[in-house]
Simulated assay, not measured.
Amino acid sequence: MTYQNILSEVKDQILYLTINREQKLNALNKATLAELADAVAFAGQSDAVRGVLLTGAGEKAFVAGADISEFSGYNAEQGEALARNGQDNVFNAIENCPKPVVAAINGFALGGGLELAMACHIRIAADNAKLGLPETSLGLIPGYGGTQRLSLLVGRGRALEMIATADMISAERAEKMGLVNTVVPQAELIAAAENILNKIKLRAPLAVAAAIKAVNAAFASEVNGFDVEIQEFGKCFNTQDFKEGTTAFLEKRKPAFSNK
């Protein structure tokens, strides 16, 4: 698939994805979502990718929201389909990606932009970033998992406050609330995200994927997270990486994992 709205590059086993609609503050339209879905699917399947760094072009916006002009005339059925397709193909796909996805929030992360960041496994924000879910000011609510993921990250009261008031918050407050992992100066943002991914690259890839699955299961009502953890823990024992990791530990050397 040839991308028109995102930039994609694999470098040192990291897939760099940049939403490249700077003049539109990187707003999400249907075409951009389709490209993101394709890129995330590639990341999950490619042995050349060990992690994903997701950011927005420029210094103003990570993603400043969805492209409202595309759905302003929708009815209820069309609106539900929009939300369901987006969640299934992009937001849930990112959350369930077996490769760690780090959001480098370089500016405004509003509406669908904040929902995109929340679907990522780890969030690093520039100190100038502003975050919010302003949908109620448009007569809507978040439709790409925002009500659910924000509640899980910051608690019901803070989530309802942010959604009902439609207020933006600073990166500093977002860090205090647990919405982002770390805040760094804008100039250090990409390096900070790379630093996390480079640390993860030193660990066993299959174990990292198992950890993502088990942690996600803690918030999935249809499964028992403890059972998922036990099953994934057991599966690790059949991997070559487990044998390499334990052997390297006993031999007091660094492991050389093979993703097998």
Rank of each mutant, 00 (worst) to 15 (best):
62 F>T: 02
99 K>N: 04
96 N>R: 12
79 G>Y: 07
54 L>F: 11
144 Y>P: 02
128 N>R: 02
121 H>P: 02
115 E>H: 02
149 R>Q: 14
68 I>S: 06
141 I>G: 04
159 A>W: 01
84 R>S: 11
98 P>V: 05
60 K>I: 12
71 F>L: 08
70 E>W: 07
104 A>M: 05
138 L>K: 09
99 K>T: 04
79 G>N: 13
70 E>Y: 13
55 T>C: 08
65 G>N: 03
47 D>S: 12
104 A>G: 10
118 M>E: 00
96 N>S: 14
84 R>P: 01
139 G>C: 05
107 G>I: 10
66 A>N: 14
105 I>N: 01
120 C>N: 05
99 K>H: 10
113 G>I: 00
162 M>P: 01
159 A>L: 00
112 G>R: 05
85 N>E: 15
121 H>R: 05
164 A>N: 11
65 G>D: 04
82 L>D: 07
144 Y>L: 15
64 A>P: 09
92 N>A: 07
117 A>R: 04
131 L>C: 00
127 D>F: 13
63 V>S: 15
95 E>Q: 13
62 F>A: 10
103 A>I: 09
150 L>V: 01
60 K>N: 12
139 G>D: 04
148 Q>M: 06
123 R>W: 09
62 F>W: 06
94 I>Q: 00
75 N>F: 07
141 I>H: 08
78 Q>M: 11
70 E>M: 07
96 N>V: 03
67 D>A: 10
86 G>Y: 07
76 A>D: 15
84 R>E: 14
93 A>S: 15
120 C>K: 05
65 G>V: 08
133 L>D: 02
160 L>W: 06
142 P>V: 08
111 G>R: 11
113 G>V: 01
67 D>P: 05
156 R>M: 08
66 A>C: 10
145 G>Y: 09
100 P>R: 12
54 L>D: 14
64 A>G: 13
103 A>Y: 11
86 G>M: 03
75 N>I: 07
68 I>Q: 10
123 R>L: 15
156 R>I: 13
112 G>D: 10
56 G>V: 11
116 L>S: 11
137 S>I: 05
134 P>Y: 08
88 D>S: 03
123 R>E: 04
115 E>T: 11
138 L>V: 02
